[in-house]
């Protein structure tokens, strides 16, 4: 068994006439949390959507657990064990919290023990169990979107900017939740703009620019190298202290 659960090799993606990904090479180690960083428009969201088959790779290969999933339709990729939390959360606003989770439980009924664990991570979901998801706050919607991805065990979680637009207190709660999720041995690929959150969570990091991965390494190394951050991300650490 390979150490890497997911491998992208030379992946190109076109959206209409636009060439977005220019040969992405990326390896996601099992049981680790890999941060995918980069400026706006670097191709992070496109990478996640291409892995999920929502946009087809025009070139290159994507292998998941040794299986080529490059040309698989999205439902088959999801059934292979990949869960996806999109940037806009995409919760079903007209459905209740309970109904959102029932839909995500593809293999049958909700598992009470797992539900209890999820309520431990996100107590608000238990409180708002029977309410339409559309009335939840932004942070609660994000919790629901993540809960939907973990309501059944999945091999890989793809999560796109979970802290976007959230208040700092909620972001720290979210970081705690991801730490807990990490401790279960989950493999996670997390797109994040918030460098502080990335520093606290990431085991590995890949930095994208202009549709390519331009840096790979340990998150701790990047977190300690201000010059590299400035070079790769245009970050001034003063702004993040």
């Amino acid at each position: 068994m390979s150490d890497n659960l997911l491998n992208l090799q030379g992946v190109h993606t076109h959206i209409g006439q636009y060439h977005i990904l220019h040969g992405v090479d990326l390896a996601i180690p099992r049981g680790q949390l890999t941060m995918l960083l980069g400026r706006n428009g670097a191709g992070k969201t496109t990478t996640l959507r291409t892995i999920m088959g929502l946009w087809q790779a025009s070139q290159g290969s994507i292998t998941f657990d040794g299986r080529d999933i490059t040309k698989l339709p999205t439902p088959d990729i999801a059934q292979a064990g990949i869960a996806y939390v999109p940037e806009n959360m995409a919760i079903f606003a007209d459905l209740t919290v309970r109904e959102n989770l029932i839909l995500a439980a593809r293999n049958g009924d909700l598992d009470p023990a797992r539900l209890k664990w999820i309520f431990g991570l996100f107590p608000a979901l238990e409180k708002f169990w029977s309410l339409a998801a559309g009335v939840l706050s932004g942070g609660q919607k994000q919790m629901l979107a993540i809960a939907r991805a973990i309501v059944e065990p999945r091999d890989l979680l793809l999560i796109d900017e979970p802290t976007k637009g959230l208040a700092p207190a909620i972001i720290m709660n979210m970081v705690q939740a991801f730490k807990e999720l990490k401790s279960t041995g989950a493999t996670i690929l997390l797109v994040e703009q918030n460098f502080l959150a990335a520093k606290l969570l990431g085991d590995h990091v890949a930095v994208m620019d202009d549709g390519r991965v331009v840096h790979r390494g340990a998150m701790a190394e990047l977190a300690e190298d201000a010059a590299l951050q400035q070079k790769l991300l245009g970050l001034s650490m003063d702004a993040h202290q």
Binding site: L121, P123, A124, F128, V135, Q140, Q176, A177
Partner: peptide, 18 residues
């Protein structure tokens, strides 16, 4: 187990508008 969200003290129940 850590509490990863708003505590019950800060959470207010959203009103469902039927």
């Amino acid at each position: 187990m850590s509490t990863a969200t708003e505590t019950s003290a800060t959470v207010t129940l959203p009103k469902v508008r039927i």
